[in-house]
């Protein structure tokens, strides 16, 4: 049976670009607000918690999480396909990346969603 991977395909390509464009916008907001650049400063619970407790920032951070995880792991998958040619090895790496993505998605979600200051 051939490993039914979907990559190398149109949607992997398209979503890499769409999430890339979204990430530029999300990152600029993240640096300007969360990291208070260009002013900067030390980040503590007192600074971060009130923001993270609001619905707006929860939605923002969840969007950020989904876009960055998809983009980053799909990117790793693109790199892997350039260097690993065995079908079996590719399959295991593919499922490994999916599992890692799921774990990080859950870890991020349980950090953000139930948070109260």
């Amino acid at each position: 049976m051939k490993f039914p991977r979907t990559s190398g395909g149109f949607y992997a390509w398209l979503f890499q670009r769409l999430t890339g464009i979204l990430l530029v916008i999300l990152l600029l907001i993240h640096f300007a607000v969360t990291h208070n650049l260009p002013k900067g400063g030390t980040l503590t619970y007192a600074v971060v918690a009130p923001r993270l407790a609001t619905a707006t920032w929860k939605v923002f951070d969840l969007m950020f999480l989904v876009c960055a995880l998809f983009h980053g792991l799909n990117g790793v998958w693109m790199v892997i396909q350039d260097y690993v040619h065995s079908e079996t090895a590719q399959m295991w790496i593919y499922y490994g990346l999916c599992t890692l993505g799921l774990i990080l998605l859950i870890l991020g979600a349980i950090t953000v969603i139930p948070f109260k200051a």
Binding site: Y45, V48, A49, L52, L65, L104, L107, G108, I110, T111, F115
Partner: peptide, 10 residues
């Protein structure tokens, strides 16, 4: 993601 998860600990 792992570092920021520590915020759940207060």
């Amino acid at each position: 993601i792992w570092v920021i998860h520590h915020i759940s600990q207060g």
